[in-house]
Amino acid sequence: MKLNQYLKIWKHVLFLELAADMIYKLNFFIKFSAVFLADFLGPLGILFIYQHSAGIPGWTFAEFIIFTGTFTVTLGFGRLLFLEMPIRIIQSVRDGSFDKYLTAPFHPLTYLTMHGWFTEGASSVIAGIVLIIWGLSHTAGYPALNIVAYLFLLLMAILFQHAIMILISACALIYVKSWGVFELFFGIEKFARYPLNIFGPGLRIFLTFFFPVAISANYPLETLTKGFNTQIIFVVIIPVLIFYLISILFWNHAIKKYQSAGG
C-alpha cells in the first residue's frame, strides 16, 4: 500500500518538476516566438497575393518584403526602447507611485525613457531584420549612398516612435482611464504598414505632414530605391522634428496638469 502511494507521489512530483521548470520559461519562450511568428504572417499573406496577381503597384515582392521588414524593425525598436514608458505611467498613476518619477535627479521624461525597455520588442526587431536581409538578397542591390540615407531615415523613424510613446504617455497621464489610448495610436500606425502610393492624396498628406508615421517605412524605402534628394528634408525630416517638438510640449502640458491636480 505504502509503496503504491509513494510511486504515485513520485510520478506526480516528477511531472510537476518537469512542468515547473519549464513553466515560466515556456511562457517566455512562447511569447517571443509568438511575436516573431506573427510578424511573418503578414508577409506570408502578401506572398499569396503576389502568387495570384501582379501584386502591389510599383513594388516587386522582394521590394515589398524590404518595406515590411523596415516597418517591423522601426516599430520593433519603438516597442523595445520605449513601450514600457506609458505602461509604467498608467500602472504607477493607478497605484499612486508615479511621483517617484518626478522626484528623481533627472528630467522626468529622460528618467521615464530610461525605463522604457520592453524586451518583447526584440522579437520584432529580429524578425524585421530577417525580412530586410531576405528582401535585399532578392533585389539587384542599391548604391551605398542610398543605403546611408535609408539608415539615416530609419533613425528618424525611431525618433518618431519615441515621439509617439511620449504622446501616449502624456495622454495616459491626463486621462488614466483605460488602455484605449494605445489602441488609438497603434491604429493610426497601421497605415504605415503599406506604401503611401496605394492611398488617396488626402491620406498621403496627412501621413506625411500631420501624423508623419510614413517615416516608419515608406520614406526610408523611397530613399533606398530612388536615392536621397533635398525635397526629403522638407517633406519628411522637418515634419517629424516638428512632431517631436509638439510631443514634448504636450508632455510638459500633461505634467503641469498632473501636478496642479495634486497628482
Partner: peptide, 23 residues
C-alpha cells in the same frame, strides 16, 4: 507537494534529475 528549486539554469537542469520536493 511543493518543490524547492535554487535559481539559475544549471540548477534547473539539475533539478530535472534530482527532484527536491517537500511535502
Amino acid at each position: 507537494i511543493t518543490h524547492h528549486r535554487e535559481p539559475g539554469i544549471l540548477n534547473a537542469i539539475k533539478s530535472l534529475f534530482n527532484r527536491k520536493h517537500q511535502l
